[in-house]
Amino acid sequence: GPGLTDLFKTEKAAVKKMAKAIMADPSKADDVYQKWADKGYTLTQLSDFLKSKTRGKYDRVYNGYMTYR
């Protein structure tokens, strides 16, 4: 089956995709945050998933999740 690194890459891609969806349409934020909360994502995990070469690119999404939880 898929190894943990593959799983991480898949999760990371999914999280980034959802983060971009929030940035494009902030009204989606609560739905996405709820999904992440259901998956039990911690802020540390989210921070790892949303690492970007562009500093602060996903800060709004991260901060939103922090206040959501």
Rank of each mutant, 00 (worst) to 15 (best):
residue 1 G to N: 13
residue 1 G to I: 10
residue 3 G to T: 14
residue 4 L to F: 12
residue 5 T to F: 05
residue 6 D to C: 15
residue 6 D to L: 06
residue 7 L to Y: 14
residue 8 F to M: 11
residue 8 F to L: 11
residue 9 K to G: 07
residue 9 K to M: 06
residue 10 T to S: 13
residue 10 T to C: 15
residue 11 E to M: 05
residue 11 E to T: 08
residue 11 E to N: 05
residue 12 K to W: 04
residue 13 A to D: 07
residue 13 A to L: 08
residue 13 A to I: 09
residue 14 A to M: 14
residue 14 A to K: 13
residue 15 V to N: 02
residue 15 V to Y: 01
residue 16 K to F: 04
residue 16 K to G: 03
residue 16 K to N: 04
residue 19 A to D: 00
residue 19 A to P: 01
residue 19 A to E: 00
residue 20 K to N: 11
residue 20 K to P: 00
residue 21 A to L: 14
residue 21 A to G: 05
residue 22 I to V: 12
residue 22 I to S: 02
residue 23 M to N: 04
residue 23 M to P: 00
residue 24 A to T: 09
residue 24 A to P: 01
residue 25 D to I: 03
residue 25 D to V: 03
residue 26 P to N: 06
residue 26 P to S: 07
residue 26 P to D: 05
residue 26 P to R: 05
residue 26 P to Y: 07
residue 27 S to P: 03
residue 28 K to Q: 09
residue 28 K to F: 07
residue 28 K to D: 03
residue 30 D to E: 11
residue 31 D to I: 10
residue 31 D to T: 11
residue 31 D to E: 14
residue 32 V to T: 08
residue 32 V to E: 02
residue 33 Y to W: 03
residue 34 Q to F: 06
residue 34 Q to V: 05
residue 34 Q to C: 08
residue 35 K to G: 08
residue 35 K to P: 00
residue 36 W to E: 00
residue 36 W to Y: 01
residue 37 A to E: 06
residue 37 A to N: 08
residue 39 K to Q: 09
residue 39 K to S: 09
residue 40 G to R: 05
residue 40 G to D: 04
residue 40 G to T: 02
residue 41 Y to R: 01
residue 41 Y to G: 00
residue 42 T to A: 03
residue 42 T to N: 05
residue 42 T to C: 04
residue 42 T to P: 02
residue 43 L to E: 05
residue 43 L to Q: 04
residue 44 T to K: 12
residue 44 T to W: 09
residue 46 L to M: 10
residue 46 L to E: 00
residue 46 L to F: 02
residue 46 L to H: 00
residue 47 S to K: 15
residue 47 S to G: 09
residue 47 S to P: 01
residue 47 S to M: 12
residue 48 D to G: 14
residue 49 F to W: 13
residue 49 F to R: 02
residue 49 F to N: 01
residue 50 L to C: 02
residue 50 L to N: 00
residue 51 K to P: 04
residue 51 K to Q: 10
residue 51 K to G: 13
residue 51 K to F: 08
residue 52 S to M: 05
residue 52 S to H: 07
residue 53 K to L: 05
residue 53 K to H: 09
residue 54 T to R: 11
residue 55 R to S: 12
residue 55 R to P: 15
residue 56 G to D: 08
residue 56 G to C: 09
residue 56 G to F: 07
residue 58 Y to Q: 01
residue 58 Y to M: 03
residue 58 Y to G: 00
residue 60 R to G: 12
residue 61 V to W: 01
residue 62 Y to H: 04
residue 62 Y to A: 05
residue 62 Y to C: 08
residue 63 N to M: 13
residue 63 N to R: 14
residue 65 Y to E: 01
residue 65 Y to N: 00
residue 65 Y to K: 00
residue 66 M to H: 08
residue 67 T to L: 14
residue 67 T to Q: 15
residue 67 T to N: 14
residue 67 T to V: 14
residue 69 R to W: 10
residue 69 R to G: 04
